[in-house]
Amino acid sequence: MVSKHVRFSDEVESDYGIVYLNKKMAEYNLNMNQTIERIFSEHELFQKMLNNHDELLVEKIYERFKRDLDVIRVRTGYADKNARIGLELWNGYILTNNQENYVTTELVETKALQQAREKVEGDIAAYRQKKLEREKKGESVSDPT
């Protein structure tokens, strides 16, 4: 056993030091040396718990971020796939019909294109509304895209 002389702040100067030590000695029903060792032991345990908590928090943030990115990646892939399919179909249609001239939608927008745009926007709005309603109920939302 090693003997050391320790000085504490006066009770008036600090709520810690001898005030804290006396309170803990009464709480633990131990002598001064045993109480100090127990405080050190608890301190080490709380430091480990704090470090572990930080690691868990980082892991939770990572998992949430990954899940959100996975959804975005799936949606992006779905949209890209459909855009490429559309491009291939239109290319085949134009080739088959020997169509050389092209008019942009800035110049002329057909009724069919307007209807298609409105339908897609309506579908997206309806999906968003359903998603919000499910989130309010606490249900998981599966992405149809």
Rank of each mutant, 00 (worst) to 15 (best):
T76C: 07
M49S: 02
I72L: 08
L56A: 02
E55M: 03
H53A: 05
D70V: 02
R67H: 11
E42G: 02
R73G: 00
K66S: 11
L69V: 07
L50I: 11
V71H: 12
S41Q: 11
L45R: 09
N51C: 09
F46K: 08
F46Q: 06
H53R: 04
L57V: 14
K60V: 11
K66D: 13
R73E: 06
E42F: 07
R73Q: 05
V58S: 10
K48N: 02
F46A: 02
R73H: 06
N51F: 11
I72D: 01
L50T: 10
F65C: 07
S41V: 04
L69W: 10
I61V: 13
Q47V: 03
E63N: 06
V58Y: 07
N52L: 02
E44M: 08
E55G: 00
L45T: 05
E42Q: 08
R64V: 04
S41G: 01
E59D: 13
E63K: 10
V71P: 01
F46S: 03
V58N: 10
D68T: 05
D70L: 07
V71S: 14
T76P: 00
L45M: 06
E59C: 04
L57Y: 13
R67G: 04
K48T: 01
L56P: 00
T76R: 10
H53K: 05
M49K: 09
K60P: 04
T76D: 07
L69R: 09
L69K: 09
E55A: 08
I72V: 08
V58E: 13
R73Y: 05
D70F: 03
D68G: 12
L57G: 12
L50R: 14
K66C: 08
I61Y: 08
N52C: 00
V74R: 15
R64H: 06
L69S: 12
E42V: 04
R64N: 11
K66H: 13
E42N: 12
E63I: 02
Y62F: 15
R64E: 11
V71G: 09
L56M: 07
I61S: 10
K60L: 13
H53E: 01
R75L: 15
V74Y: 11
E63A: 07
K60W: 07
E59N: 13
Q47C: 00
F46V: 03
H43L: 06
D70I: 03
E55K: 10
E42R: 07
L69N: 15
K48M: 01
R75N: 15
L57D: 12
Y62K: 15
L56D: 06
F46H: 05
L56Q: 09
E55D: 03
K66G: 03
E59I: 07
H43Q: 07
R73I: 04
E63M: 04
D68F: 05
F65I: 05
I72M: 05
T76L: 09
D54L: 14
N52G: 00
Q47T: 01
